[in-house]
């Protein structure tokens, strides 16, 4: 089971990348008593039946590991959200993409901690490929409001390949969490 909300997001964005999305929009917001996350991709999408089955922990598309019958990404999320009375919503269309939205009540005792946000943003940016991710992050109570783009960041660094680039990217992402006021 995942520990932090960032772990869930990493898992789900990895799904988008594996679904061949070239553009992913990620919104992470802490406001009005909720931690809300939206992931919107232009990947291959799922038909109605597949969307339903994605909630079954014993379903996987079977593409990567033919004999496996486990797919825990969405089921983990649904379980965690339902446990604390949060909401979630999945909308997907084959050939168009997938939109996933969920929110946790911030004050519930069993709501997972947000986790290492700069680490999450770094992680979702350094899978292989030319996909773009546009991140919008807001926490009005802490004066945090910024946006980052994967391809812009990659361009500034000349690639995420080596450890030096990763460390600088992390510094950059950490500094974005500083209140702008």
């Amino acid at each position: 089971m995942h520990f932090t909300i960032c772990d869930f997001v990493l898992d789900l964005v990895q799904n988008s990348i594996e679904a061949h999305a070239s553009h992913i929009q990620l919104v992470i917001e802490e406001a009005a008593g909720f931690i809300s996350v939206g992931i919107d991709d232009n990947g291959q999408g799922m038909d109605q039946a597949t969307q339903k089955r994605a909630q079954d922990p014993y379903f996987t598309d079977g593409v990567k590991h033919r004999r496996r019958k486990v797919g825990l990404g969405i089921p983990f999320l649904v379980q965690a959200v339902q446990q604390v009375g949060g909401d979630w919503n999945l909308h997907s269309e084959p050939g168009v993409g997938t939109k996933l939205y969920f929110r946790f009540p911030a004050e519930h005792l069993d709501t997972p901690p947000l986790g290492d946000l700069p680490g999450l943003l770094l992680s979702i940016m350094c899978f292989d490929g030319d996909y773009d991710i546009h991140v919008r992050r807001a926490n009005p109570a802490s004066d945090i409001d910024y946006q980052v783009n994967r391809l812009e960041l990659r361009d500034a660094l000349g690639g995420f390949g080596d450890a030096n680039a990763l460390l600088l990217a992390r510094q950059f992402l950490e500094s974005q969490e500083i209140a702008s006021a």
Binding site: E152, A156, L157, N164, L168, Q171, F172
Partner: peptide, 12 residues
């Protein structure tokens, strides 16, 4: 302070 993309480019 908040780092800008230009500062990041320079550091790199």
């Amino acid at each position: 302070a908040k780092m800008t993309l230009d500062q990041l480019r320079k550091l790199r």
